[in-house]
């Protein structure tokens, strides 16, 4: 493998940081959403379920465009963020994280929800009869038992973030050092004559990262399942 230039290293670090932020903010929301979908019955639950899964079926470019509409400087949420907190998401690193988080959200919700559904409801009942209220049960029984799913959500989500392209380029653009993550850099490299070597190097990194993520997920998942006696 060719050695990386400082700019390429910067791209790698930027990609890792964008993905980390996307998971850091996205995962707790995904867990909450999965819990609501798995445990609560309310009108509009089906609609929530559909909206959550929308980014999975929409073309990523459309998701990016919708984000522009909502979080753009003149978008309903974007204008509030800008006026009240001075935060601008469009064409920024934070915006790239947001786009990644939205794109991986359905994957994370699904993984967490599957593991929540697999929990024996009798254990939560037992905790209840032992004096644990709902928040207490959530943190001492439900989430620990769902931990393999939560971990899988985090790792697979992270790996997916590293490869997010369409929504990121649409919403955050392709600014080297700010929003140019690995796939965007590979794309740009392929656009210039003689960029194949650079693209190949970056692709190898991408491949390595994805593979590491999947292997880690497998390994941690096995250990957690052993700890849970499965």
């Amino acid at each position: 493998m060719t050695t990386l230039t400082p700019e390429e290293w910067e791209t790698v670090w930027l990609t890792l940081a964008v993905a980390a932020r996307a998971i850091g903010f996205g995962l707790p929301v995904a867990i909450l959403t999965a819990w609501i979908l798995a445990r609560c019955r309310f009108p509009g639950r089906g609609l929530l379920n559909a909206v959550v899964h929308l980014p999975m079926v929409l073309p990523p470019v459309v998701t990016g465009w919708l984000l522009l509409i909502v979080f753009g400087i003149r978008g309903p949420i974007g204008v509030l963020l800008h006026d009240w907190f001075g935060i601008r998401l469009v064409f920024t690193t934070a915006g790239a994280s947001l786009a990644c988080a939205v794109m991986t959200f359905p994957i994370m919700v699904r993984a967490v929800r599957l593991s929540l559904d697999a929990i024996d409801g009798g254990l939560e009942q037992a905790a209840r009869t032992l004096g644990a209220g709902w928040l207490d049960r959530l943190f001492t029984v439900t989430l620990p038992l769902a931990s393999p799913g939560i971990l899988a959500a985090a790792i697979v989500g992270y790996a997916t973030c590293l490869g997010e392209f369409g929504a990121v380029i649409t919403f955050a653009a392709n600014i080297p050092g700010q929003t140019q993550t690995l796939p965007l850099a590979i794309y740009s490299a392929l656009q210039v004559p003689g960029g194949e070597a650079k693209a190949a190097g970056l692709s190898m990194i991408s491949l390595t990262l994805a593979l590491t993520g999947l292997l880690l997920s497998e390994w941690f998942g096995k250990r957690l399942n052993t700890a849970l006696g499965r």
Binding site: D120, A126, A127, R128, V141, R230
Partner: peptide, 20 residues
């Protein structure tokens, strides 16, 4: 009284020990 405030201990047929 909800179960968590009832102080009625239950032993279920299937134990229901917390596996973690």
């Amino acid at each position: 009284l909800p179960p968590e405030r009832r102080r009625a201990g239950v032993v279920f047929q299937d134990s229901r020990l917390f596996p973690h």
